[in-house]
């Protein structure tokens, strides 16, 4: 891979854009690697968390937005908590996801389907209902029998139950609706600003 740097390339432009989006200045990172060291999802990632930050520093927008890494981050916050320089790595990951979505870049994993399924289930029941969520995820991803084999065992061990539990569904729905409204308002503002 060749990194081109020259007069016409502004390395800082992407960092600044990212700072606006996420409130985190990636230029603070000094590449110690502590985020990579503690990342529980590193085995699934094509570039490690510290590398994502490095690519951001170098302004390699295409590289990070097309990486698997941003979609496999589970927001456990280990990286951000431990970062000696106060870089909010998981926040950067989230911001990059939003950027990728805005640019219609296809996610490199099915994680979007899981997110959709998760949101619908929360909207319906006010809390997670695992069989429903996995079923919905499998329908969307097209892999209908994914993980179905574990179902009886988990049922027997009472890890999941067939009956959904409802919990303050109305309030949760209100929260989600309001969030949706806020998102729309923000999008509109951005549109007008342009």
């Amino acid at each position: 891979m060749l990194i081109k740097i020259g007069r016409e390339v502004n390395l800082l432009a992407f960092s600044k854009k990212l700072e606006k989006e996420t409130g985190t200045d990636v230029r603070k990172c000094y590449q110690c690697g502590k985020c990579t060291a503690g990342c529980p999802m590193n085995f699934e990632m094509d570039v490690s968390p510290s590398q994502v930050i490095r690519f951001c520093q170098l302004g390699m927008e295409e590289k990070v937005l097309n990486s698997r890494t941003i979609w496999y981050c589970i927001f456990c916050d280990t990286c951000s908590t431990r970062c000696p320089q106060g870089v909010d790595i998981k926040g950067v990951m989230d911001g990059l996801r939003r950027m990728a979505v805005a640019r219609n870049i296809k996610p490199k994993s099915n994680v979007r389907f899981l997110e959709k399924a998760f949101q619908s289930i929360i909207y319906l029941f006010g809390r997670v209902y695992e069989p429903g969520m996995v079923g919905m995820y499998n329908l969307r991803s097209g892999n209908f029998l994914h993980d179905v084999g574990y179902f009886p065992l988990m049922l027997r061990k009472r890890k999941i139950s067939l009956k959904p539990h409802f919990k303050r569904t109305r309030e949760v729905r209100q929260v989600m609706k309001r969030a949706q409204k806020m998102k729309l308002r923000k999008a509109k503002e951005l549109e007008e600003a342009k």
Binding site: T36, G38, V47, S48
Partner: peptide
Amino acid sequence: VEGADTLTNSQI
């Protein structure tokens, strides 16, 4: 000891 090697980009 759980660490990283940033030169090969791997967990160690």
